[in-house]
């Protein structure tokens, strides 16, 4: 999700044409590389879940010996996403950051910090799956998985490794003209260092089981909880759908339909029935009354048509 944000913001800082279109190219480039390392991650995670029959990270740990291939691929993908050269993510992220740098410093700063954060959380994931405590999963009846599971993993891993060398800026640009991109080591150093810092911190905290994470969590307090709850965004959604839309709109709509709109139709029918009940009295069964009505009918017609309408 956070990577998609990256691409979007790259599109946002991009201007049309020439050198200014770097953001656009970068975005597309990142989309391209992202496809590989993200699918490696997912596939790897899938393989892990297949093995441990759970998708809760707390059930995992120390799997690097049990599933070596997955381990390697996962590591490559993590390095790629963290933007460590020469993995693919480095190149595409580089383009984006350059574009941001030329466009707006504040945005650039935020993007930069995110780089570190990304590296941190990816490696937290990596360590808690493959390192941390010793595996709790005992010898299972199947190992890492069949060949058909491994081959795609390997292919994707290789791609994550190499996709950065594809000269995409030559092909995909905002105005169709090829764009020369070059790596400036000075500029690249900062994000890479930040990423390494993130990785280092993750290593410190999560490589082996220790109490450090909990200590930090309690130090950060509210912020950690908010983040843990995904900044409560899901709750807000749930509140809007459950409380406002369901109770506030859906239920009244259904109620109105049943009781007012449909009620009106039924009311029409009932009124007809009531009137019918009411006029029943005229049919008394007495001939003298019938004669009276008969006569009244004649008088009525006579009055209307002779005096009123003539």
């Amino acid at each position: 999700m956070s990577q998609i944000g990256y691409m979007m913001f790259a599109l946002g800082v991009s201007k049309y044409g020439g050198e200014n279109g770097l953001g656009f190219t970068g975005s597309m480039f990142h989309l391209f590389t992202h496809a590989f390392f993200k699918s490696s991650l997912f596939l790897g995670a899938g393989a892990v879940i297949h093995l441990v029959h759970s998708n809760d990270m707390r059930d995992m740990g120390g799997l690097r010996k049990l599933m070596p291939v997955t381990h390697i691929v996962f590591l490559i993908a993590c390095l790629a996403i963290a933007g460590i050269p020469p993995f693919s993510g480095f190149f595409s992220k580089e383009d984006i950051l350059t574009a941001a740098y030329h466009s707006n410093r504040l945005v650039y700063t935020v993007a930069l910090l995110t780089t570190g954060l990304t590296a941190f959380y990816m490696f937290r994931l990596y360590y808690s799956i493959f390192w941390s405590r010793n595996t709790t999963v005992q010898e299972t009846h199947h190992g890492e998985g069949t060949l058909s599971m491994k081959i795609p993993l390997v292919i994707l891993g290789i791609c994550s490794l190499l996709a950065g060398f594809v000269p995409i800026s030559k092909w995909v640009t905002s105005d169709g003209a090829a764009l020369e991109t070059h790596i400036e080591p000075g500029f690249s150093a900062l994000p890479v260092l930040l990423a390494l810092g993130g990785i280092g911190m993750a290593t410190l905290l999560y490589k082996s089981e220790n109490t450090l994470p909990r200590t930090i969590a309690s130090l950060l307090g509210g912020f950690y909880r908010t983040a843990y709850k995904k900044f409560y965004i899901d709750e807000v959604y749930l509140f809007i759908t459950k409380k406002i839309i369901f109770n506030g709109i859906g239920r009244p709509a259904a109620w109105i339909d049943k009781n007012i709109v449909d009620g009106f139709m039924n009311l029409l029918a009932n009124i007809t029935g009531r009137i019918s009940e009411f006029i029943r009295g005229f049919q008394s069964g007495k001939v003298q009354n019938y004669a009276l009505y008969f006569f009244a009918g004649i008088i009525g017609l006579a009055v209307v048509f002779i005096y009123l309408l003539n």
Binding site: Y290, Y293, F294, A296, G297, I298, G300, L301, A302, I306
Partner: peptide, 24 residues
């Protein structure tokens, strides 16, 4: 004439049971 005509119409209406000459 209209009155006479109304009487005739009433006679017809009785036979074809038009309201209000229908009660029988």
């Amino acid at each position: 004439q209209i009155f006479a005509f109304i009487l005739l119409i009433a006679g017809f209406s009785f036979k074809i049971s038009a309201v209000p000459f229908h009660l029988w």
